[in-house]
Design a protein around this nucleic acid. Sequence first.
DNA 1: ATAAAAATTGCAATACAGTTGCATGCTGTT
DNA 2: AACAGCATGCAACTGTATTGCAATTTTTAT
Lengths: 138, 138
Amino acid sequence: MKQEVESMLKSKEINPTVNRMLVLDYLLELKSSISLTDLELSLESFDRVTLYRTLKTFEERGLVHKIEDGMGITKFAICQDSCKAGMHHDLHVHFYCHNCKQTFCLPKTQIPEVKLPENYQRQEMELIVKGICSACAK
Amino acid sequence: MKQEVESMLKSKEINPTVNRMLVLDYLLELKSSISLTDLELSLESFDRVTLYRTLKTFEERGLVHKIEDGMGITKFAICQDSCKAGMHHDLHVHFYCHNCKQTFCLPKTQIPEVKLPENYQRQEMELIVKGICSACAK
DNA sequence: ATAAAAATTGCAATACAGTTGCATGCTGTT
DNA sequence: AACAGCATGCAACTGTATTGCAATTTTTAT
């Protein structure tokens, strides 16, 4: 497992330090996305700034993507399916749970072209669905 | 004009103070949405906190809605068409311009049901389209 | 019209996410 | 071992959001 994490980092040209391997490992296990603050609480062994810079590096190298959760909080998640398909900067569909405050990446959904006013140029889209997740619905 | 602004406030059960009338008047003229900071810069006569509370009151009474612009900044805009149709808390489509950083409310667009995982409950949706607005495209 | 009550406003202060600079420490190389 | 280069931690700063409280304005009841 450690090997896998290490080679993932290397393949993105990121030095596999202890910190980075821990963070990546944690993110891989994670089923939703996470904010810097929550990451700090989960991995207390490292300084907030270090984690901040780790996430920033990961994002720059295309290992994770940044999510605005629709409530003003920035979260990070491992790039999945759609990202791998080269959609990294195109379309994101996320689900925000009002109860547990978690943000989940939803499987890619077809969204029709949005009719823009004259001369508007579309570059990216973000769709945030808010509600209650299955775990909280029980 | 002042009469109109005043009666708008009264109809929402908001005391029509000088501050509130100025803010509402300003928002009515506005073609896009505005952040607290930008409002503060535009209406220097009032304290930031007062404007903050004014916007909060307006939002609570359904006069404006809050927008996460997709870049982590909260903005406010007068509720338009779709809001009036009782959609206030249902679906918002906004356009964020990477160049001028403005966020525009887009005319209501049909968005199909997003397929949610088992047992997820949808309450609201927010669609942010990012790109270049017509004014900046020139 | 006036006084009391209630609501609004301004100032100060706090909370917190995000960010940067710099000194220290670790890693790998010659 | 000495050096270069990157990584990390600490302190500090920015900017937005938010609250408490005292002062002021507005409303309400006489």
